[in-house]
Design a binder for these strands. Structure first.
Lengths: 136, 136, 136, 136
DNA sequence: GTGGTCTAGACCACT
DNA sequence: GTGGTCTAGACCACC
């Protein structure tokens, strides 16, 4: 499995970041149904986070029907997980947008300004030059 | 001063809600430079929050240069506060959008989807159009 | 008596400002021993402050031996007040310097820097143009 | 981290003393960027003050850009904090001198006397003889 | 264990 | 009555 990227500076809790990334990979079929996942300990050591954190992410994804843990055999992407994963991604996006709106509710800015600010910030997210050369 | 509206259910801390609303009113000149603000205790009792919470909001707005507090005489909108207030509102909006982007960074959704989700959520927020013509 | 100047923005309490100015005038003989002072009510209304504030200043200056209140006849500069007034001015200056030193004790700046900062600030205090015309 | 020294008798508020000392250590690189600070609770118990007092100091230093707090991971000296810390020390010194000048504005003493009083007070502050190294 | 937020209540100096 | 400071203690989410 390609490495997940954990950003400890990000204010999203680590277990949420793990869940989001796994959901994304299941949703876009990078991790097709049936694929094995790294063990809790192994992923934890790769990401340099506490095993409890990984275990929590796996446990919650299992509740969402995206993973399936077979005891003593490991954790796998559930059959027909892709649909719920995609739905999960959408829900997460909507929740995040909802949080944004709640946060700025008191700011007295109108809708146009919000969209404009988002467009600006999306534009500023280095547009990933087609030539491919990353800075540094 | 027209009442502030505090939503205890909102996940933004109360002192942040107070700051945002005061910044907005200073920024749009509802509260012009020199205006007196309600005393800490008075606003606290109106909003039914602890005086310390209001005091924290006032103290931080003073550090931002938006309020000016004359010890034992009360708290006032600082002269030339409107500019910093408006700047402050913009910065808050940008920060919130930045947080949104950080939150969804791992979701694997593309920019178009994010804008679409925001538009949808803004639309769902009672459209407030008297004539009915949406901007956007 | 030439008007006292009260600065409500100054963080020194009003009664202290009154005391300081009266002490200065007694010390430099602008108000020689025996001179009558305005009544509490009259000075309070001139300065637009609470009569209690003026009364407190008079009371404390009486304790210092600088004023003398003759009941029903008013308040006067005490005989031989000038010496104690001058001493009082010196003491106030030393106290203020002591407070400065206490305030900056934790700043980790050396003595030279403190003197330099004071010199700079004294220099910045508009040098009172010899031509005499005040700006505005 | 070497211990901070809090003087409860000093009229500077405790949280200001904490801020000043941390600013000084960041400014002179005793606490280089990236260094972890003691946790709020730990420093509070060392200094024998309330954790809220320490939290307030950390929070304000974060708003100044000197500290950076990673939620639930601890508080650290911000990258590129040293410059702002040094600037902060200078500003604090200037403010304190400004307060001195405001305090003595009514005293009618001339600039020479003020400088003289400061020199005297600095001299009285154990002269830090290089030979007789105190530092107790 | 970490920091963040909030409440309640106290004391202070000053008006 | 005003604001400023501090304490004590609570609850939260997260690690």
């Amino acid at each position: 499995m390609r490495h997940l990227v954990i950003d400890l500076e990000n204010e999203s809790p680590v277990y949420i970041q793990i869940m989001d990334q796994l959901r994304a990979r299941v949703g876009d079929a990078t991790l097709p149904p049936g694929s094995p996942l790294p063990s809790v300990r192994q992923l934890a050591s790769e990401l340099e986070v506490n095993p409890n954190t990984v275990a929590k992410a796996y446990m919650l994804l299992e509740r969402e029907g995206i993973l399936r843990t077979l005891s003593r055999r490991g954790t796998f992407v559930a059959e027909s997980a892709d649909a719920s994963a995609a739905r999960g991604v959408d829900r997460r996006l909507e929740e995040a947008v909802g949080r944004l709106l709640a946060e700025i509710a008191h700011l007295g800015v109108d809708d146009r300004e919000v969209l404009e600010a988002l467009r600006r910030s999306l534009g500023a997210k280095q547009p990933r030059t087609p030539s491919g050369d990353e800075e540094r």
